[in-house]
């Protein structure tokens, strides 16, 4: 696994990965891919792929509004920054 690919995956996942750890993580990812390759070698012809490990189907909810709502203040309280009812985050536009 090339360092460049590891860097890209880390960026897409927003994980800060120090340069010094790239090689180690690349090695770990390689062994995971080896396991995947081993599983992919299993003959699965004619077997429908599963989308979920449980053989159940999605239950549906009636289109109704919740009667009890946690207050907005309560919900905003868990954010590091909030003002005027808005969550505040570091500026995301150039």
């Amino acid at each position: 696994m090339e360092a460049e690919i590891v860097r890209r995956i880390a960026h897409l996942s927003r994980i800060a990965l120090p340069e010094s750890e790239l090689a180690q993580v690349a090695g770990q990812l390689d062994s995971i891919f080896a396991l995947v390759a081993q599983m992919q070698a299993v003959p699965t012809e004619g077997i429908e792929p599963m989308a979920h490990p449980l053989d159940l189907q999605q239950p549906l909810r009636a289109d109704q509004l919740r009667s009890e709502t946690p207050s907005r203040e309560e919900l905003l309280a868990s954010a590091p920054r909030a003002e005027d009812g808005l969550f505040l985050v570091p500026k995301v536009i150039e």
């Binding site: 005027d84 969550f87 570091p90």
Partner: peptide, 15 residues
């Protein structure tokens, strides 16, 4: 929705 203009250095988020 993101509001970019109201807060200096920050964006307001309405979910």
């Amino acid at each position: 929705k993101s509001l970019h203009d109201a807060y200096p250095g920050e964006s307001g988020i309405d979910l």
